[in-house]
Design a protein around this nucleic acid. Sequence first.
DNA 1: ATGACAACCTGTGGGC
DNA 2: TGCCCACAGGTTGTCA
Length: 269
Amino acid sequence: MPELPEVETTCRGIAPHIADRKVVSVIIRESRLRWPISPELEAGITGARVLGVRRRAKYILMETDCGTLMVHLGMSGSLRIMPAEAPALFHDHVDIVLDDLRCLRYHDPRRFGSMHWLSEASHPLLDHLGPEPLSTSFSGAYLYERSRRRSTSVKQFIMDGKVVVGVGNIYANEALFLAGIHPKRASGRVAAARYEALVGAIKDVLSSAIEQGGTTLRDFVGGDGQPGYFAQQLRVYGRQGRPCRVCQTALKEVRQGGRSTVFCRVCQR
DNA sequence: ATGACAACCTGTGGGC
DNA sequence: TGCCCACAGGTTGTCA
């Protein structure tokens, strides 16, 4: 489910509801996430006042006056505001109960997500992340420099979190199509001007997906429970075998690093 | 350093 | 209808 636009949508959805609220308790029904939830989480967050919510890569950072709750949604996670008394459903693993009879409820069937309590400003998982894709430091020149003498494919290159964060499989496919670049091309052999186009495409596709409230595949819902509407604008992802929206050629599907790649062999070189 | 791949899980959809 | 397999939005850790 969640790629960067979905995580951003979640942040924006929950922020107004939790700002300035106090955490009165934590209910952990299942602590076995990608990493087990540390007992320090409950001790640290109980009684804390929420200052705000921000996002770094695909991590949601809920800052309080006592420390920071760091949440990752993995492949199937979601975080929603609910009435605290709403009955918990299967896979509703954690409730952060607030002082207004509501709670922030974490749901994650596959348990690839994670929840950490940070009493300090930093965390090892945040240490080696590349730039934010929507920041000005993420530029064509930057990608060009980083890619020189690298043989890895351009798709795997832009999906590497040490290069740039937040470009997941859906949007990598979409951005490469928009930039007209073949996903299997060696990243070290993409010209500077084409990296400019690629960076523009990544920023465009991510920002318009955020504007649409994310891409809803299966059952993604934002922090307020609303679905996203970007799926109807996908150009290649999930459209293998169907005609390219530009030249009508049947879109091709290949596999890269175990992930599905869909592209147009005519429009992308 | 780089790159390929297994691993962590459950749910779902397609093929038979 | 039902069973089994392959695959799904992510990321880390390991090994060559």
